[in-house]
Amino acid sequence: MTTPAISVRGLIKRFGDVEVLHGIDLDIPQGQVSCLIGPSGSGKSTLLRCMAFLEEATDGLIFINGEPLGYAPGPQGKPVRLPAARIRAVRSQIGMVFQQFNLWPHMTALGNVSEALKTVHGVRKSEAEERAMVQLKKVGLAERAGHYPSQLSGGQQQRVAIARALALEPKIMLFDEPTSSLDPELTGEVLNVMRALAADGMTMVVVSHEIGFAAAVCQQIAFLDNGKLLMTGTPQEIFGKPRHPRLDQFLDTYLDRGAAMLV
């Protein structure tokens, strides 16, 4: 067995007194696309953010390619916090794409994509920009390199955000509802970029309400409900009959039933 790209072990997350993740165990296989689906408020974003250590787990551990992220198993079973440099090193294997794009408004597309190469990795400006251009080409935005985020459509901004993450050559890409804040006619261009990435063999974890995408592109689907992982499986296993009643209800309530029928 190869090491999973991400292993989540006994993950518990509380915000104050409210427990939103009640002990999650999940493996993300290498080179596959895994989708997290579930009703809104079920804890999908929190789980994804814990995988990136943007949110600290209350208990439990996260392993990235076998290495603990944030906390390591301690002597008395109690996790111990790792030094910041170690956290940064492990986290550098992960790229993250946010629902709200989160591009830096004072930098052009090229500036956004080349920033970390220059500032963090000390790559010369000309070389960093060359490498950034390669990524912008990959997402089809080479000719928009000099545009600021405010001059780009939502779909273009999200593709720049993907290029920004890719520029650091991560092994794993996390997407938190990457198309949810886009007009419907702009979701396609982002999903196409993600499809191409998947075809390249990138390990991806995608929180999405795009059930059509999940069914067509994901090898693994995890259904989260109320802070619990109710089931994981292939699209056929998840969407095929018989369905878990909560999943059926979720598909009825939240989603385009037709898309799930395509499977």
Binding site: M96, W104, P105, H106, E115, A116, V120, H121, A161, A165
Partner: peptide, 25 residues
């Protein structure tokens, strides 16, 4: 907050975030 999380994810240290993201904005 999201702009800083994006910076976290590409490895900018807190001082680099201050200088490159927070201060200009």
């Amino acid at each position: 907050r999201g702009l800083l999380e994006a910076a976290d994810m590409v490895g900018l240290s807190s001082f680099q975030q201050f200088r490159r993201i927070k201060a200009p904005i």
